[in-house]
Each structure stands twice: as C-alpha cells, then as structure tokens.
C-alpha cells in the first residue's frame, strides 16, 4: 500500500483503488466524463489513466492506421499491452521526498507522478509514442540519508518508444531524452545519471510517400 493508501485495494482491474476498471474509465472518457463520478475525479491514478487514454487515442492513430493496413489484428494486442503497461505505471507507488526545511513539513512526489511526467514528456515529441517507462535507482533519498535528503539520489530512466519516421531515429530519441531530462530537472530533485531510450517500433510515413509518388 502507498503511504496514503492511494492504491489500497488495487487489483489488476481496479485503477487506483477506485473500484473502477480500465474499461469503465474508457466508457467514462467516451461519455465526456459526464455525469461526474467523484470516485474517479478525486483519484489521481484514475485521472492519470484518463489523460493517458486521451493522449494515446491521439498519438496512436497514425501508427495504428498504418499498422492496420499491413497487419490487421496486431494492433489490438499492441494497444492492449500498452494500456496494461500504463495501468501499472500510473499506480502511485512510493513517496519520493522533496527537501523541506521545516521538520514538521513533509513534501513528496509519487513515483506514479514521475512516471506520468516522463511518459508525457516523451509523447510530446512529434511522431513518438512511449511504450514502457521505468525508473531505477535510489528514489528514497540514498543509503543513510534522512527523510527529505535527496541530494544523493541518483536514478536511471529507461524508455521504449514507437516512432513514425518523420526524422532520423537518433534525432527523435535524442529529443525524447532532452525533454524527459528537462521535465525531471524542473519537477523533481533527483539526479538523473542516464536516460536510456530504446526504439522498438519504426513506422514509415506512408501517407507522405504515397502523396509524393
């Protein structure tokens, strides 16, 4: 259980302990999030999942449309896997400390919020869709460091991405790396030792090629 219990009672089908499954969240999204459901609207993990679903719907469309022409049937598995991955990643996880000067004040960010930040940063690069995102290292503050001492925390971020080949793969991967690093610098106090980006799918811009021919 997370320290605040955000994920208390989580099961594979229950997002953020809300009692709502991924399918129910998708239905809620398609209904325009109406009528409002407080258990979803007041749950950070549900909100992260809904935003991911929205972003995924936009970003995956050009990848899926190309894949559907070449290999219909593959996409459902790919999307299902991606959704399951996102469902795991939005879980709040550990509380990562920020520095605080008042001993009676504790400031933290959840592991899930950091993963969502990383995923959104990668997805913000044109033609890129993040597949998996993992953060490894000492997120809690490092060895003997006390609560709130994050000065020695060093992490490694690893991403897999699918790309539409609108630019050289290395250029896209570098753009992802830079945006992720920039966001982590801005919103966390973690030391990032490496950001590993692995391109797992490359899709050609068939529309552009067909238009030119």
């Amino acid at each position: 259980m997370n320290s605040d219990g955000d994920t208390d009672g989580d099961t594979d089908s229950d997002i953020g302990g809300s009692g709502y499954s991924l399918e129910q969240l998708a239905d809620y999204l398609y209904r325009g999030r109406t009528p409002p459901i407080p258990e979803i609207d007041e749950n950070a993990e549900c909100q992260a999942m809904l935003d991911s679903l929205e972003r995924l719907g936009t970003l995956s469309s050009e990848l899926v449309s190309k894949d559907a022409l070449d290999a219909p049937g593959v996409d459902e598995t790919w999307l299902a896997t991606l959704l399951a991955t996102i469902g795991r990643e939005v879980r709040a996880g550990r509380d990562i400390p920020y520095a605080a000067t008042n001993p009676n004040t504790r400031l933290t960010i959840t592991e899930g919020a950091i993963r969502e930040l990383v995923r959104a940063a990668g997805d913000s690069v044109d033609g890129v869709l993040v597949g998996t995102c993992s953060i490894e290292g000492d997120l809690d503050g490092g060895g003997d460091a006390g609560e709130g001492d994050v000065a020695e925390s060093t992490i490694t971020v690893s991403l897999t991405i699918s790309v539409v080949l609108s630019a050289p793969v290395t250029t896209l991967a570098q753009a992802v790396r830079e945006r992720v690093h920039s966001e982590l610098l801005k919103h966390t106090e973690l030391h990032v030792s490496a950001i590993n980006v692995t391109v797992v799918d490359v899709h050609m811009l068939t529309t552009a090629i067909e238009d030119e021919s």
Partner: peptide, 23 residues
C-alpha cells in the same frame, strides 16, 4: 495550510503535501 491553522495548532501540526500528478 499552516497559515490557515490557529497559531498554537500550526506550531506542532505535521503537514504532508504529496504531489500526485503534474498536469
């Protein structure tokens, strides 16, 4: 939060602010 509490209460209150999303 601390400013919103009575001063006597604020002095000893343990306050935890958790950032759960950045969006």
């Amino acid at each position: 939060i601390r400013d919103a509490l009575d001063p006597a209460v604020a002095e000893t209150a343990a306050i935890h602010v958790r950032v759960s999303r950045i969006a």
